[in-house]
Computed example of a mutant assay.
Amino acid sequence: MPPGPVGMGTGVNTDAGTDESVNGGGDAGRVMPEVPTFGVEEEYFLVEPGSGRISDAAGRVLARARSEDGFADTLTGEFTRYQIEGRTPPCTSLAELRAELGAVRRAAARAARAEGLRLCASGTPVLGRAATDAIGDHPRYRAGLAQYRSMMRDFAVCAQHVHVHCPDPARAVLVGNHLRPLLPALVALSANSPYHEGRDTGYASWRTVIRQRFPCLGPPPYAESLAEWDRRAEAVTATEAMLDPAMPFWDVRPNPRLPTVEIRCPDVSADLETAVRLAALARAMVTAADREVTRGDPGPRLGAEELRAACWQAARDGVTGPAGESALRLVTRVREPLEAAGDLEPVESHVRRLVAGGSGADAQREAAREAGLKGVVRRLVTQSETEPETEAAQDQGSRG
């Protein structure tokens, strides 16, 4: 993939022409099924267990993972050497996604521990870094550094990207029009980056703020067709604010290499249950939007400035602000596709739990009050490397 700030890795099993990546399957009918497959890619920091600082050891950790676990297709590098990325295959159910993502996290954690490090799923580094320049050793990453210059110096952020099978890029653009106003709710629910290199930013998702500095990131434009989408990407590229019009890094996009709608705004979640249930919510959002496209609804023409401001507010306030109430309404809005997938109860209960009890950002601040910033890192590591078996077992029982 060409350089661009978030998601600059190679995507989710993104070999050109391969339909066995995050959402495999053919192009038959070019229409989304009632319950499409979905998958996730996540980015994780590598941290030193003593200092809690991020470590530029991605090369060593990936070599270890590939030699010991055979995870060559599911673990890869990222924009900085402080990070690695995990990818799931296409999944049909929440339970399957949980199993696959849990396996990815276990493999990544084993490899990190073998190199004397730990896995930490946080949107931004809680503490500092061991090196000042740890850009990944890839020509496209270096090109991104040349293009954006000092804007990239603190660009070490970790996201969750959700892919939902959609075989027609033109249809994916129209689906994206319906998703645009819903993005602030996902930003709030997933917010997991209140600290940045030793300081409390005052935000729930500082990663979102870092990303919004870039003119090529953030909410996507409204586009009536794939041709209009392409023209807008080409216009941004002409200003040198985007490196490749074929590879925009907006928060929703038709993935350039996969038959998917890709949602890119969430912070990575330390808690596995939050990760998989928000992914299931994202799938329901895409499915509901696809039904609206089928009915001929062009989607709300929310202005770019208004939408960007709403995402900023969600990043600042998290679930305690207006986006928290929007998240509850969102579940009601996508109730039918959640029911069709068997995901209504686990997703609805988890969203209510997040809105009432706080997101990952709130959990980080609670840990800081109890044990300082090193305590925050320790809690994140524990969550990132541990599967919450109780909730998983409850879901299996309700489905069995």
Rank of each mutant, 00 (worst) to 15 (best):
Y222E: 07
V175R: 06
C216D: 13
P215G: 12
F214Q: 10
G218Y: 07
L189V: 10
N177M: 06
D230F: 05
V175M: 12
R199G: 11
G176S: 09
E224A: 15
W229F: 15
P219D: 01
A185I: 11
G202I: 11
A188C: 04
Y203N: 04
P219C: 02
H178T: 03
Y222F: 14
A185M: 06
A188K: 01
V209S: 13
P215M: 01
L186R: 07
V209H: 15
R231G: 11
I210M: 15
L174D: 03
W229E: 06
V173E: 02
V209M: 14
P219V: 10
L179M: 06
P215A: 14
L217A: 14
G176Q: 03
L174S: 04
L183V: 04
S205C: 07
N192H: 11
L183A: 07
H178I: 05
T201N: 00
D200E: 10
A185D: 12
A227I: 01
G198T: 06
P221Q: 11
E197W: 02
E224Q: 13
N177C: 03
E228L: 13
T208L: 12
S225E: 04
Y222I: 09
Y203W: 15
E197L: 14
V173W: 03
R207E: 08
P221C: 09
I210D: 00
V187A: 13
G202T: 07
D230H: 12
P221S: 10
L217T: 14
A204D: 10
S193Y: 07
C216P: 03
L179G: 09
N192K: 09
Y195E: 08
A204W: 01
R211P: 03
W206T: 12
L174K: 11
P215H: 10
V209G: 08
A188E: 01
L174V: 04
A204Q: 11
P194Q: 06
H178A: 05
F214E: 02
P184E: 03
L226Y: 14
Y195P: 04
W229N: 12
A188D: 00
G176H: 07
V173G: 05
H178E: 03
W206F: 15
P181D: 12
Y203E: 08
S225V: 03
T201K: 05
I210V: 15
V173F: 08
D200P: 05
R180V: 09
L179R: 08
A204E: 10
A191W: 05
L189Y: 01
N192M: 04
S190F: 04
A223Y: 01
P181A: 07
G202Y: 07
W206L: 07
P181F: 10
P215F: 05
L186W: 08
S193C: 08
W229D: 12
P194V: 01
